[in-house]
Amino acid sequence: MARARPGRDAGGVEHELKAPTLLPEEPEVIVRGRGCRVWDDRGRELIDYRCALGPVTLGYADPTVDAAIRTQLDDGILFGHPHPLETTTAELFCALVPGAEAARFLKTGGEALAAVIRIARAHTGRDRVVQIGYNGWLNSLAAGARVLPGATSDAVPGVPAALAALHHAVDWEDRSALDRLFLTRGSEIAVILVAADYPSIPEAADFYRYLRDLADRHGTLLAYDEMVTGFRVAIGGMAEATGVLPDLAVFGKGIANGMPLSVYSGRREVLGVLDRGDVVVTSTYGGETLSLAAATATMTAIRDRDVIARLHTTGTRLQIGMNELFARGGSGLRLVGHPACPQFVGSDAEIRTFLRASFRQGLSFYRVVYVNAAHAAADIDETLRRVERVVQETAA
């Protein structure tokens, strides 16, 4: 039987971070998922900690979400007029997320962040944008910006120099660089767009307070990229976790359990540029009903099943257990950061060796480790037993 192959695009895959680089141990493709496990085209079963790079918060094929999708499918996917779900899903989102006075939908994080940048420029009448962290491929416009979560580039091919010059990439917690930039360009900066540094999330509140004060002193907007942190670190992401509210925010991964949906939200006064027609942000597929039905079911489940606490508890047990095994085995690796999305820290060679050996043991890890609500205590026990074998094998 012929084996499935990744899509035939320029890089062989649809997403660079999904490209299998540790063959033959790493799966080339995944064909099925259920709960916290996935299967590849060779029939291998793996305990999964990639969770589709973050979106799968409840687990693969969650019955509540799948039932909502199937029910809505019978009534239609997309229409030429608004569907009630566009309103009710937005109302539920705003009820759950601190600082979200209004919300609209798109499909991906990149385009939602682009909308936020455009809204901020229109609201402030300013052109410059400060970017901290990875804000999606569409917004990696500044020299030195994150072109992928773990990679930066001094060049921005495909971006006109005049546009790149208006975007300023600043490292996490680099307050001196921010102070210098605002000293010379403060009156020109429309928005600070910040994505949390995963290993630093537990201590991030002070930096967010600093950013809020800096923005307020210069009449600049503050926007949060909550694509990973929203509905994972907390329902309301870093705004809820730190108590520091932004003017604008973008959510996506986590709200629809894998269905394609992003949200841009914030203060009604700022988003008012859309209602006045000053800015047009529109998408034929923003009101696609299957994703909205999935989002309503997912957000409701996260709220009613206390999913965030479960992610924290499960992630803490996994993180502590793995770090104990690393230390006992003399490994230089550690899992650092918030337990719902900790990140491997160590040399690149160590990480790659560990990931390769993990695939051999039926564990699918990513450099950021995501648990979902389907990871039960027995799955964590089994994972730690397998990790112990991986540590022993790599030490040998």
Rank of each mutant, 00 (worst) to 15 (best):
P199L: 06
R276A: 15
Q131Y: 12
H123K: 11
L248P: 04
D154Q: 13
T316N: 08
E28M: 14
D379H: 12
G362H: 11
A2G: 09
T316Q: 01
L363P: 12
V250D: 03
G158E: 09
D179S: 11
Q319M: 15
F79P: 05
L274K: 09
N372D: 02
I189G: 09
M1D: 11
T184G: 13
D306L: 05
R185S: 12
L148R: 12
G186P: 11
E350H: 10
S200N: 14
S262Q: 02
L355F: 12
E203R: 13
G272D: 11
S176H: 11
D174R: 04
F105C: 03
E226F: 01
G272P: 06
Q343K: 11
A327I: 01
A4W: 14
G11K: 11
I380R: 07
G133W: 13
Y366K: 11
T229S: 10
A100Y: 03
F354W: 02
L384Y: 03
A215D: 02
Y285C: 11
L384A: 00
D278M: 07
A396P: 12
A195P: 08
W137R: 14
T152W: 08
P55A: 05
T282E: 03
V56C: 05
A103T: 02
D348G: 09
I69L: 00
T184Q: 15
E350I: 03
W137N: 13
V29P: 03
V38N: 00
A102N: 04
T242L: 12
G33P: 03
R42Q: 15
T108P: 04
A190H: 12
G286I: 10
V38L: 06
W39D: 06
D278I: 10
L290P: 06
A327F: 06
A122L: 09
I308G: 03
V116N: 01
M299S: 14
G330S: 02
G329L: 03
D127R: 15
H218N: 01
S265W: 00
A256C: 02
R180F: 07
G272S: 06
G258S: 01
L166Q: 14
A395M: 05
R317W: 11
R175V: 08
E288Y: 10
G230Y: 03
